[in-house]
Design a protein around this nucleic acid. Structure first.
Lengths: 180, 180
DNA sequence: GGCGGCATGTAAATGGTTACATGATTAC
DNA sequence: GTAATCATGTAACCATTTACATGCCGCC
């Protein structure tokens, strides 16, 4: 266990290795880039050092293999890693889990008063289109990656659908207010 | 307009100054710390340099005043700042707006398979309690800061309520799956 | 022979964070 | 007089990001 806490990304990757391992950093990156979320870019500069860190912390075990002249490092989670993962999953939950999540549309809507009435109307339409686009992203992701996997991953799709529905309901309230 | 894009936090603060200005960096921080979101800490190390930057960019105008020996810098938004704010609000929306938002509970639920059935039950209960806690945060914030302000701020409360309701509905689905 | 995908990494910049520091003012 | 709050800032640190770099392999 390290002195300073682990980041959200570190523990998320730890979870991915638990779920998909043995897995290479390259494949973790590929997996993350397919995600409909832009929370993390899955950049090499983040993932490679991160997985080395987890390895040094003995939360991951590494096996280097070579196919021809091509090398590859595959990681598996260790017993200590599983303990760390369970601690992160909770309960108890860290303060960052106990908050409203960040919605960039909400942040922008807060300042809708800075737009003209016409621009506000256009904003509502744009936001509707954005939600439509997001739903399409979720559907695509579901069809390509969640079907046939464990039920916990199918629940990610449900989450996205319910969340988008809530944002749409909220958007209708915004539209009503703007129209009044 | 700066060469590299502005950060989400920069534009959010720009919006706050538009909404609450003339306002000091100190009061922006106070405002942010009251928020039920932990997206940003509102730390001095973030806000003071940020507002200086916006000032140098001529998106904010500053007036220094002194009450007795105590100095204070009050910022107002400029015409250029309002243009930048409107551009940020959109439409069009930047890619980061067009995504599902990040929910730490969802990320953790994804790995619920790493827990024992008993622990999963406890997780569900903990998550329910967390959502309850979040609803209380929102209610408190609403009573103290949104009542009596413009309708756009009241819509923040609605957003929080609808979002929490969606997360709770999702959590029931998780519970059903875990129980099965 | 070249292009795209596999696989691993590093370098520099960025935009935050925590912690520290200072001094004035108000409330008790 | 002392504790809390007002008000402003800096220093050190950190986890990310983008961009760059290398070399191998399979395919056409």
């Amino acid at each position: 266990m390290s002195k300073r806490g682990s980041s959200e990304l570190e523990c998320f990757v730890l979870g991915l290795v638990w779920q998909l391992g043995p897995i290479s950093a390259y494949d973790v990156r590929a997996h993350m880039r397919r995600s409909p979320s832009t929370q993390w870019s899955g950049s090499a500069g983040a993932i490679y050092p991160l997985m080395s860190r987890l390895h040094r912390r003995h939360w991951l075990a590494a096996t280097r293999e070579s196919v021809g002249r091509r090398r590859r490092t595959r990681y598996r989670i260790t017993a200590a890693g599983r303990r760390a993962l369970r601690a992160w999953i909770g309960p108890p939950f860290s303060p960052d889990v106990m908050t409203v999540s960040y919605d960039p549309l909400r942040s922008r809507a807060r300042f809708l008063g800075a737009l003209s009435p016409r621009e506000r109307q256009r904003w509502i339409q744009g936001a509707e289109a954005a939600l439509h686009h997001i739903e399409a992203l979720i559907r695509t992701w579901h069809d390509e990656h969640a079907r046939g996997s464990d039920g916990f991953r199918a629940l990610l799709t449900i989450h996205g659908q319910l969340e988008t529905r809530a944002r749409r309901a909220w958007l209708r309230r915004v539209a009503e207010f703007v129209a009044s």
